[in-house]
């Protein structure tokens, strides 16, 4: 075993039933799927070694992820197409491998460089486009949009970077871009609640993670 580990970045989609699996459970699910690949996975040193994996950002329960990312590490170089074919057989049907890349170990962690996320929200069919547009306009014209999260209050306005309504009858989609750093994390479902829409009536898809540009 060489000391230098190989960092692999995987882009994947999380769909269907797996939308209802939380972040910690997803992490365990990845560990087991990776074990099934029989790849030379890198573990932490010490008394109880753990597989080295690193997920970019927790996806809230119920959301679809189209381009989620995670890093894992190998002890030796394996061709990407080999890794890819092993992963495809070991991942559950509703976790879809989209891309693999080798990443320099010196690069910062996914969490540390994550800036924002883009979402597409499929709104209920009976929504009135004009009323919704006005409602969004009114909301964002306010100085702050405070929402309660457990014990603290967060200003949602500060977390919304951009938005856009697309409508091709009978489908209405709200595209929204929100901050996604560990300290400032926007939740589109909170915005839906402010709009008077039950998030359970929508399908929220995170379409893209935006990271800090490399030097």
């Amino acid at each position: 075993m060489s000391n230098e580990s190989i960092r692999i970045r995987m882009t994947y989609a999380k769909l269907g039933n797996l939308r209802f699996i939380g972040h910690l459970d997803l992490q365990r699910l990845f560990e087991r799927a990776l074990r099934r690949t029989n790849l030379p996975l890198r573990y932490t040193q010490g008394f109880s070694p753990h597989m080295r994996i690193n997920l970019a950002s927790a996806l809230p329960l119920g959301f679809v992820g189209q381009a989620e990312q995670m890093d894992f590490w190998l002890d030796q170089v394996i061709p990407l197409n080999e890794i890819s074919s092993r992963l495809r057989t070991s991942l559950p049907a509703e976790l879809i491998l989209k891309d693999l890349q080798v990443i320099d170990n010196k690069q910062p962690s996914l969490q540390a460089s994550l800036l924002s996320s883009e979402y597409e929200i499929l709104l209920p069919a009976d929504i009135d486009l004009q009323i919704l547009k006005d409602r969004i306009g009114t909301l964002l014209a306010q100085d702050t949009l405070p929402v309660q999260r457990r014990k603290k209050t967060v200003d949602l306005k500060n977390l919304i970077l951009d938005w856009q309504l697309l409508s091709v009858s009978p489908i209405t989609i709200l595209k929204i871009s929100m901050k996604s750093s560990p300290l400032e994390n926007g939740r589109p479902d909170e915005f839906l609640v402010l709009l008077g829409i039950d998030p359970a009536d929508c399908l929220v898809t995170r379409t893209k993670l935006i990271f800090e540009e490399e030097e």
Partner: peptide, 10 residues
Amino acid sequence: KPGRYVGGEH
């Protein structure tokens, strides 16, 4: 824990 009710396990 909605994961209890959806199946879809490996």
